[in-house]
């Protein structure tokens, strides 16, 4: 996927991305302070928002290959299991019991499979949203600050799951966060955004080491 010369204007904010190229499978990070345009960039990339101008080249990806996990997950008014298999149902794929059980097990939701999903705790909801995004094997997953409100154990779950999946079935992840620690542990390549622009890009280690001065003073770099 490649986006070029993307412009998006809001009342008090304007986004301009000269070029952002995600050419290979890997975990890409977009980092920057609140309001720098990370989520907007992601929504444009995921096809959820039309830019005012510019071009998004999906190459050989279709909408069916792309999914997104939001900071505030959306769960249907249905059971955990129905939420989990929803993307399979849409594709008329018969859920594989072993695969479903595997995901429920690793997310710690096996016992809650028949519970009403919106009644789960925040962390459980977020875990469900992530495994739901993975279960249909998309080629690209956007994760928009999904770790923001999670405890350390849940964050660790997310990171382990993504890294394990990436070992067995590499795809493209784009993770947006304002926590450098997540980015450092997960990402192969990082884009640093500030005031609606991509200011720098590179490997996570390089970026976070060399561009600390680009972060606002109030922005803690904790590894």
């Amino acid at each position: 996927m490649k986006i070029s010369k993307i412009k998006k204007n809001f009342d008090r904010f304007s986004l301009y991305i000269e070029e952002l190229d995600i050419a290979e499978n890997g975990i890409y990070g977009i980092i920057g302070s609140n309001g720098c345009g990370k989520s907007t960039t992601m929504k444009i990339m995921a096809g959820l928002m039309k830019p005012d101008s510019g071009h998004v080249d999906y190459k050989n990806l279709s909408q069916q290959d792309i999914t997104m996990v939001f900071r505030k997950p959306f769960l249907m008014r249905d059971t955990v299991i129905q939420n989990l298999i929803y993307p399979l149902t849409l594709r008329k794929i018969k859920p594989n019991t072993d695969v479903v059980n595997y995901y429920l097990e690793i997310a710690g939701l096996q016992e809650l499979r028949n519970q009403y999903a919106p009644g789960l705790s925040g962390g459980e909801q977020q875990k469900l949203a992530l495994i739901r995004a993975m279960i249909f094997s998309p080629k690209m997953i956007f994760i928009d600050e999904a770790f923001s409100n999670l405890d350390l154990e849940s964050v660790s779950f997310f990171e382990s799951l993504i890294l394990a999946r990436q070992q067995s079935e590499p795809i493209m992840y784009v993770i947006c966060s304002h926590q450098p620690s997540h980015i450092k542990r997960l990402c192969d390549h990082v884009f640093f955004m500030d005031k609606g622009r991509i200011e720098a890009e590179g490997s996570a280690t390089e970026m976070l080491a060399n561009h600390k001065n680009m972060l606002p003073l109030s922005y803690p770099v904790v590894f």
């Binding site: 096809g47 909408q63 792309i66 999914t67 249907m76 008014r77 993307p87 849409l90 594709r91 995004a133």
Partner: peptide
Amino acid sequence: IRMFAFTMGANKIQTQILLVKE
């Protein structure tokens, strides 16, 4: 709901069905 349906790869009819259900 529409945003979620879109990210799940739902087509227009599937989105409408989800919307009515939700």
